[in-house]
Amino acid sequence: MRQVVRIAMVAGEPSGDLLASHLIAALKQHLPDAVFYGIGGPKMDAVGFDSWWPLEKLSVMGYWDALKHYREIAGIRRQLKKRLLDQKPDVFIGIDAPDFNLGLETDLRAAGVRTIHYVSPSIWAWRGGRIKKIARAVDRVLALFPMEPPLYDKERIPVTYVGHPLADMIPMETSRAAVREKLALSRDGPIFAMLPGSRQGELAAMADIFVKTAQIIREQHLPTARFIVPLTTRETRLQFETAIYRQGATDVPFRLLFGHARDALGACDVALVKSGTSTLEAALVKRPMVITYKIARFSYWLMKRMAYLPYVGLPNILAGRFVVPEVLQDQATPENLAAELVKLYEDKDNAEAIQETFTDIHYQLRQNTAEKAAQAVMRCLN
Results as ranks from 00 to 15, higher is better:
residue 376 A to I: 00
residue 114 R to L: 13
residue 133 K to T: 14
residue 208 D to V: 05
residue 100 F to P: 11
residue 117 H to C: 09
residue 243 A to L: 02
residue 279 T to K: 10
residue 353 A to Q: 14
residue 236 T to C: 04
residue 36 F to P: 14
residue 380 C to W: 07
residue 224 T to P: 12
residue 160 T to M: 09
residue 127 R to W: 04
residue 340 E to N: 13
residue 83 R to Y: 01
residue 335 E to D: 14
residue 247 Q to A: 14
residue 131 I to F: 03
residue 261 A to L: 07
residue 186 S to C: 08
residue 40 G to A: 05
residue 12 G to K: 10
residue 330 D to Q: 13
residue 201 G to H: 00
residue 265 L to F: 06
residue 51 S to R: 13
residue 53 W to F: 10
residue 196 P to D: 01
residue 244 I to Y: 00
residue 360 D to I: 07
residue 92 F to V: 02
residue 213 T to N: 09
residue 49 F to W: 04
residue 45 D to G: 06
residue 183 L to P: 10
residue 338 A to W: 04
residue 272 L to V: 12
residue 208 D to P: 05
residue 23 L to M: 11
residue 38 G to K: 13
residue 193 A to G: 08
residue 106 T to P: 10
residue 79 Q to P: 13
residue 122 S to E: 10
residue 293 Y to T: 10
residue 97 A to W: 06
residue 303 M to I: 13
residue 69 H to Q: 11
residue 203 L to Q: 06
residue 74 A to P: 03
residue 253 P to T: 02
residue 354 I to S: 02
residue 141 V to R: 10
residue 339 A to Y: 09
residue 159 V to P: 01
residue 80 L to T: 04
residue 215 Q to W: 03
residue 210 F to R: 04
residue 357 T to P: 11
residue 185 L to V: 01
residue 286 K to W: 00
residue 31 L to V: 07
residue 348 K to Y: 02
residue 380 C to P: 04
residue 42 P to T: 09
residue 244 I to L: 00
residue 95 I to K: 11
residue 119 V to S: 09
residue 329 Q to I: 01
residue 83 R to L: 09
residue 73 I to N: 02
residue 231 L to M: 03
residue 34 A to N: 01
residue 344 L to W: 11
residue 323 V to L: 14
residue 216 I to G: 09
residue 115 T to D: 01
residue 28 K to C: 03
residue 257 L to H: 10
residue 271 A to T: 10
residue 212 K to R: 15
residue 141 V to I: 12
residue 306 M to L: 15
residue 167 A to E: 05
residue 261 A to G: 08
residue 160 T to W: 08
residue 191 I to P: 09
residue 27 L to S: 02
residue 314 L to S: 12
residue 199 R to E: 06
residue 291 I to P: 12
residue 12 G to S: 08
residue 6 R to D: 08
residue 4 V to H: 01
residue 72 E to F: 00
residue 132 K to Y: 06
residue 375 Q to A: 12
residue 170 I to E: 07
residue 357 T to Y: 08
residue 326 E to I: 08
residue 268 C to M: 05
residue 33 D to N: 13
residue 164 H to L: 08
residue 294 K to P: 15
residue 369 T to S: 15
residue 242 T to G: 02
residue 367 Q to N: 11
residue 114 R to G: 06
residue 88 K to E: 08
residue 59 S to F: 01
residue 313 G to Q: 04
residue 225 A to I: 07
residue 379 R to E: 11
residue 111 A to S: 11
residue 57 K to H: 13
residue 46 A to R: 07
residue 147 M to F: 14
residue 6 R to W: 06
residue 240 F to V: 03
residue 19 L to Y: 11
residue 46 A to G: 00
residue 309 L to T: 12
residue 18 L to M: 07
residue 363 Y to Q: 15
residue 29 Q to W: 02
residue 261 A to I: 03
residue 276 G to I: 04
residue 214 A to V: 01
residue 211 V to Q: 04
residue 278 S to W: 03
residue 49 F to M: 07
residue 243 A to R: 06
residue 198 S to L: 02
residue 339 A to H: 13
residue 77 R to P: 13
